[in-house]
Design a protein around this nucleic acid. Sequence first.
DNA 1: CCAACTTAGTCAGATAGTCTGACGACCGTC
DNA 2: GACGGTCGTCAGACTATCTGACTAAGTTGG
Lengths: 147, 147
Amino acid sequence: MTAEPEPLNLGLLLYIPYRAMEARVFAGLAEAGYSDFTPAQARVFQRIGPGGSRLTDLAEQAQITKQSAGFLVDQLERAGYVERGPDPTDARARLVRIAPRGAAAVPVAAAIVADVEREWAAHLGGHRAAQLRQILTRLREITDRYR
Amino acid sequence: MTAEPEPLNLGLLLYIPYRAMEARVFAGLAEAGYSDFTPAQARVFQRIGPGGSRLTDLAEQAQITKQSAGFLVDQLERAGYVERGPDPTDARARLVRIAPRGAAAVPVAAAIVADVEREWAAHLGGHRAAQLRQILTRLREITDRYR
DNA sequence: CCAACTTAGTCAGATAGTCTGACGACCGTC
DNA sequence: GACGGTCGTCAGACTATCTGACTAAGTTGG
């Protein structure tokens, strides 16, 4: 770090486009009326399974504490993106499910992601864009603890 | 995610290895005695130029406000990683420079980054690792506002 | 069948990192 | 030499996160 002009470290090289993608998605969501949505909330929201998920599972997958997850789910619930219900299989647990307003936001975000990926492919060329995805998928095998 | 099994979005695919790299670097720095060093501080520290940098420049490059940058530089200064001095060319400004303890941490971090990159190259193969760097460097052209 | 352990979630309190807005000091220009 | 812009700080607020202690409910072994 600190000043080499050219051989930038790979961590930073990964971070720069990630940030750009994130910024685009949140800007687009805000424009579409979903402005009360923060990156931290999104990291939890993304992990909610089709039939709902338990708070503890969400916390583990997002690598945050139960307390943090509970706090973020509170906010998402207040904003109408998710709802909580009882878990029929375990009276201690409650299931966090995506609410209608949350479900409506998903395709909006997906469309923005697709747009950005198209832009990147246009700059890199389709071949390199595909290589990038393929290499990152392999890299994930040794860098992702969850799934 | 929300449920697609395979075509994970590129943003997340970039984020996963970035996080892994970051975690490794901070774990290694802590082990080497640099435990009072946070990711947010690092994002500012990385941008300090060889002859020192102005707070305003650091804030802009790191995409945070001057206030946040000032706060983080305060912490870095207290921990002995950086020092502040006057800017001879502008009496309003002060230059943030890397202090000896900060300079000592740089090669430690660089060595960890190099280790992780070697591991990644071993998993991907040297050819793909080189392609990854090359593609990300091109991608940076359209995703990095600063430099 | 109940005591002991485990698991799900909450509450209270603390810390880090960030923001907006207001401000004083200083710069360069006209 | 007064004025508009820049450099950095202060005050106050908010978001996101943590640790530790707690309640309630399920699980298991004697």
